[in-house]
Each structure stands twice: as structure tokens, then as C-alpha cells.
Design a protein around this nucleic acid. Structure first.
Length: 270
DNA sequence: CTAAGGACCTGTCGGC
DNA sequence: TGCCGACAGGTCCTTA
């Protein structure tokens, strides 16, 4: 489910209910996520006050004086604020109860997500080797072009590589390449600086617009407050193989690249 | 170092 | 209606 805009939408939805609240108790029903939820999570976080919720890449970081909880939603995870008497469903793996009487409920049917704890967020192996945030000023066309020099990998997996830039998932990668007019299979190192400027700009615009729209709705995505996202109607290519290109009317194509479905227009993208 | 493929899981959808 | 295969928003790990 979640790409970066969905994670950011979730963060904004839950933050008002959680920030400055004390964690009263943590209920873990299923520890077997991508990595097992460590006992250290309950041991260190229970009784702490959440000073703030940040996002880095697609990770949500719950900061306390004692350390940081690291939550990743994987492919199918979601969080929402509930009243704690709401019965837990099959895949509701964790509830975190707060002093205000509300609870954060984490659901993840496929269990590709993770919930970890660290007392040193700066050196955590999942976070310390990540590339720049796409919406930061450090990320721009010059940076992207520089990183691409000597790289033979196709541009689509290149921009989905978190060491290059974080937060560009499968949906938005196709969308950004369409806007920039770049063929998804073009080798990263063989794209001109000018076109990389267009691509970096497209990445910023698409992600920013998606955040403002509250994330993409595919199947049943909801923000933390239960409101659905509204971006799907704005997708130009993703999931539209065989349908007409909005720019030139040519039938859109689909190809598998790096085991991921990739959508593009043969005529508009070179 | 780079690039490619496998692995981890459950739910849903389309076709027969 | 039921069964079966294909596919799904992520990303770490292994292999070459």
C-alpha cells in the first residue's frame, strides 16, 4: 500500500493524537513481522512520552527521551487511531495505548512491515545509509545526474534505489518518468543533465501533489484519521496499460522491470 | 563496487 | 460457487 505520500499522510493523521502523550501500555499480538518485534520495544517505550513523530524515507519514527520506535508499513501495513475497546481484527498486530485514552493500532496482513526500537537513531543500520529525501533541496537534477554517472542500470530501478533517493515507489516511479518523458528502460548513466533536471523536478512535483491529495487510493488506503486518499484519479500511466495516453492518445504499454510492473507510453517516453 | 534475482507473507481478482 | 494461478504499494539479502 504505502508509498512516501501515504506514509506522510499517515504521519499527519496520527500525530495530533499522539504527540506529547504518554504511552500507557503496548499490546503485541504478533511479533513475526519482517523482523521480530523485539521485547525491547515494550520494555523501553512503555511509560515514555512521545515527543514527536518524524518521517525518514518510508519509516515513521516515534521519538521519546529513552529512544525511538521505528515503524515501517511494508506493502500492506496501516496505522489508525482507535478507541481501545474496538475489537482487534485478524491482522491487527500491535496496539499502543496513550494517556488520552486513544490507541494507535498497527495492522499488516502481509507482515512485510516492521516495528523496531533503537536508542541511537543516527547509527541504525536501516537508516544510516539512506539517500536524500526527494523533497529536500539537496536532491535536484545535478545530484541525480552526478549519481547516475557510470551506472548501467535502467533509470526506473535507479530512482527506486533508496541509496540514490528515498521514497520513490513503484507507482510514482512510473508516473515521474512519464512526466519527464524518459523511457523506464533507459540506462541511468546515459541520460543528459537537462533531462535529469526534468526528472528530479517531476519527482518533487508528483510526490508533493500526492501528499497534498492525501496519498494514492489503491484498494483501501486510508490516512491515519480514516479518510481515504484521492490521488488515484490523477495517475497518468500506472495501471493503465492498453488505455490511451493522456498526452498523445497512443495505447499505453506495460513491461516488467526488476520484477515490478512498469507503465509507460512508447511514443512520449524515449 | 554493480546488477539481478530470490525471499519474506496474505489477500484479491480473473479465468475456467 | 469453487479452485488455481497471477499479482499486489517494499526492500533486504544472496549471488554472480
Amino acid at each position: 500500500m504505502p508509498e512516501l505520500p501515504e506514509v506522510e499522510t499517515s504521519r499527519r493523521g496520527i500525530a495530533p493524537w499522539i504527540e506529547q502523550q504518554r504511552i500507557m501500555s503496548i499490546t503485541v499480538r504478533e511479533r513475526r513481522l519482517r523482523w521480530p518485534i523485539p521485547d525491547a520495544l515494550e520494555n523501553n517505550l512503555t511509560g515514555q512520552v512521545v515527543n514527536g513523530i518524524r518521517r525518514r524515507a518510508k519509516y515513521l519514527l516515534f521519538e521519546t527521551d529513552n529512544g525511538t520506535a521505528i515503524l515501517h508499513l511494508g506493502m500492506s501495513g496501516s496505522v489508525r487511531i482507535i478507541d481501545p475497546d474496538e475489537p482487534a481484527g485478524k491482522h491487527d498486530h500491535v496496539d499502543i495505548l496513550f494517556g488520552n485514552g486513544k490507541a494507535l493500532r498497527f495492522r499488516d496482513p502481509r507482515r512485510f512491515g516492521s516495528l523496531l526500537w533503537t536508542d541511537d537513531i543516527e547509527t541504525h543500520p536501516l537508516l544510516c545509509n539512506l539517500g536524500p529525501e526527494p523533497l529536500d533541496d539537496i536532491f535536484d537534477g545535478s545530484y541525480l545526474w552526478q549519481e547516475a554517472q557510470g551506472r548501467r542500470v535502467a533509470i526506473k530501478p535507479f530512482i527506486m534505489n533508496a541509496k540514490v533517493v528515498v521514497g520513490v515507489g513503484n507507482i510514482y516511479a512510473s508516473e515521474c518518468l512519464f512526466i519527464a518523458g524518459i523511457h523506464p528502460k533507459r540506462r541511468a548513466g546515459r541520460i543528459s543533465k537537462v533531462r535529469m533536471l526534468a526528472l528530479a523536478s517531476a519527482i518533487k512535483t508528483v510526490l508533493q501533489r500526492a501528499i497534498e491529495a492525501g496519498g494514492t487510493t489503491l484498494r483501501d488506503f486510508h490516512g491515519g484519521d480514516g479518510e481515504p486518499g484521492y490521488f488515484q484519479q490523477q495517475l497518468d500511466v500506472y495501471g493503465r496499460a492498453g488505455e490511451p495516453c493522456r498526452r498523445c492518445d497512443h495505447d499505453l504499454s506495460m513491461v516488467v522491470l526488476g520484477q515490478r510492473s512498469t507503465f509507460y507510453c512508447k511514443r512520449c517516453q524515449r
